[in-house]
Design a protein around this nucleic acid. Sequence first.
DNA 1: ACTTTATGTAAAGTAAATTTGACATAGAGT
DNA 2: ACTCTATGTCAAATTTACTTTACATAAAGT
Lengths: 71, 71
Amino acid sequence: MGKSLISNNIRKLRFEHDEMTQQQLADKVGVTRQTIVAIENAKYSPSLELAFRIAHIFGSPLEDVFSYHPK
Amino acid sequence: MGKSLISNNIRKLRFEHDEMTQQQLADKVGVTRQTIVAIENAKYSPSLELAFRIAHIFGSPLEDVFSYHPK
DNA sequence: ACTTTATGTAAAGTAAATTTGACATAGAGT
DNA sequence: ACTCTATGTCAAATTTACTTTACATAAAGT
């Protein structure tokens, strides 16, 4: 698929949630830290399931964490 | 990732949208029909980007199309 | 100066999503 | 009976997500 049309505020949400570190978030959602880094920096977009898990950790609806910007 | 904790109402939404066929939906979101079949029958969950594209076609928020059921 | 913690990056591998091509079936229409 | 359309399925190939291991750096603390 083409370039990423999806942005996120994971970093912002991490800090709003007790300065949660990338490693802590990774542990909570069950992936490696590198995966969090890649998603945070929009290197690729996660699977839907992982996106849901991340949103769930932050207690936010998915669309508050990830936004889609179609052309 | 484990078994699918994600359900969807793509089929319902297709019929609500002028009886849209799997092939038509596939064309609109830019994937093959087999991918739509697999997702509709929850064989696997799509990428976040594809999930957004599908929701966008239906003019629905993503969480109206896909629901997450954590344990 | 040293150590620790948080973050970024990169290469090679595994796992999962998606494609391609093909075949099967049930239902609607002729 | 035949044809067409919509759907389901399967196996092999490709692409993308994700893991593992490892190294680099900047900031903060001692």
